[in-house]
Design a protein around this nucleic acid. Structure first.
Length: 425
RNA sequence: GGAGAGUUGGCAGAGUGGUAAUGCAGCGGAUUGCUAAUCCGUCAUCGGUAACUCCGAUGCACAGGUUCGAGUCCUGUACUCUCCGCCA
């Protein structure tokens, strides 16, 4: 959500931002609607004022005066009610649009229409060369008896997964590694529910944009969360924090659910794109200052790069272009890890600065120390790690000739000291 | 699932139909001057205004209703607490 006053005062800036984001909302119509709503507010407030004045005079009025004042007040009340209804209708129109207004992109963000125009910032780590015919992750799992992908699809449907033995342990071990790392950086580790009411989905900016992506359970009027960001973004909703509480850093773990409705036919093999997965999420609430939130944005990126480095995976850093960024985002980096079987990099992390766009939706504010003013916070989010997707590059990059998989040094303490898992017995 | 109690500003907490007390914290100001204290001001959102320290509207969990007038009365919903039941 943007500040409507900012839109009114900077229509050209907003038009340019909308164009870059591929947003078709008509800014001039929006502004006119706002001005119309204000006019109605002014006129209905004048009636309210008169109505209050009359009502309050009744108490001290004599019994002869009362009936005529009551009659007058009643008549104005009717007028007021009619005016209110008009106002409510226009206000609802305005609100409906405001909930669809995207964040404006940062001036540094590359302008583009789709992912083909994302910019590669750097490549880190060496792409492995194998002295044998490398397998893809599904073959490695089959060879080691680590998967039940076909059977589980019959039981639970497509895009589900079941993994076994050392690989099951590995999945959890990676999350523990990431949680410990985040805790070391001062993040508060928190496990959150995967069940959400509707309001947080608007707060995050999932709704009204991506209704098809979300599981909904009508019996209970609740949704399944696609990310802990959803819950963490609303955890402090409606609060007025003190500036001294900031920044607030959360490392949120949760099972995540996505319908993947828009991804028919894509990544149907293996663990890349499943309906249910686990994610440890980085979430930051900081002061309303772009320099401050950009500093945190870089920090979150650095932490997730470290995660990939600890896992010894080659990766590239992308700066996502305006047309490929979601509506909430001011600036976004993606990390992609090398997947040998696909001969390309595939997304593992998505790191975003949302500035105050979500805070306006959740009404999350803080009182500024310097002036005692109430301001909206800035929020940022980044993947810590998401599994089983991260297991795809992991298994494929670390596979050995005998089918075993090497465990990087940083991860070994979480795997009971093992240097390899699987392979010929 | 059943019964009862509750939800008032950043926090605490009064207020049983007639303009939301008071205390604490934070912020601003003044005064005193042995390291702190005293006093004054200060809730949020929105509209008017070039702007405000000015004027006004709205807000007592949320949504309706009754009334000239609702924090207060009525209905529904959400959430919290207590007890009972069920349960991995």
């Amino acid at each position: 959500m943007l500040d409507i006053k900012y839109i009114v005062e900077n229509p050209e800036v907003v038009k340019e931002g909308f164009a870059k984001k591929g947003c078709t909302i008509n800014v001039d119509e929006l502004i006119n609607l706002y001005l119309e709503v204000n006019k109605l507010k002014t006129s209905s407030q004048a009636l309210a004022e008169e109505k209050n004045r009359l009502s309050n005079s009744i108490k001290s009025a004599s019994s002869e005066e009362r009936p005529s004042i009551i009659a007058k007040s009643k008549a104005i009340g009717e007028q007021f009610k009619a005016e209110q209804e008009k106002l409510a209708a226009e206000q609802a129109k305005l609100d409906e649009i405001m909930w669809r207004v995207p964040n404006l992109p940062s001036p540094e963000t590359p302008v583009g229409v789709d992912d083909s125009q994302n910019v590669v910032c750097r490549k880190v780590g060496e792409i492995p060369s194998f002295s044998f015919e490398p397998k893809d992750h599904v073959e490695i799992m089959e060879m080691n008896g680590w998967g039940e992908l076909e059977r589980i699809a019959k039981v639970c449907g497509s895009r589900t997964y079941a993994i076994c033995d050392e690989l099951a342990r590995l999945e959890l071990a990676i999350h523990l590694l990431v949680m410990d790392k985040l805790a070391g950086y001062g993040f508060k580790v928190i496990t959150v529910p995967s069940i959400s009411k509707e309001k947080p989905l608007y707060g995050q900016g999932y709704l009204p944009f991506a209704k098809d992506e979300i599981y909904y359970m009508p019996e209970d009027d609740v949704y399944l969360s696609g990310t802990a960001e959803l819950i963490l973004n609303s955890l402090r909703a409606d609060e007025i924090l003190t500036e001294n509480e900031l920044p607030i850093l959360y490392a949120g773990f949760s099972p995540c659910f996505r319908r993947e409705a828009g991804a028919a036919g894509k990544d149907t093999r293996g663990l890349t794109r499943v309906h249910q997965f686990m994610k440890t999420e980085q979430f930051v609430i900081c002061k309303n200052d772009v320099a401050e939130s950009e500093k945190w944005h870089k920090k979150l990126l650095q932490i997730s790069e470290e995660v990939l480095q600890d896992l010894e995976l080659p990766y590239q850093v992308l700066e996502v272009c305006t047309g490929d960024m979601g509506a909430p985002k001011y600036r976004q980096y993606d990390l992609e890890a090398w997947v040998p079987s696909q001969n390309c990099y595939r997304e593992t992390h998505s790191c975003s600065n949302i500035t105050e766009w979500q805070a306006r939706r959740t009404n999350l504010r803080y009182r500024d120390n310097a002036e005692g003013k109430v301001r909206f916070v800035h929020t940022l989010n980044n993947t810590g790690i998401a599994t089983p997707r991260a297991l795809v590059p992991f298994l494929e990059n670390h596979q050995q000739a005998d089918g075993s998989v090497r465990i990087p040094e940083k991860l070994q303490p979480y795997m009971m000291g093992k240097k390899f898992i699987g392979g010929k017995k």
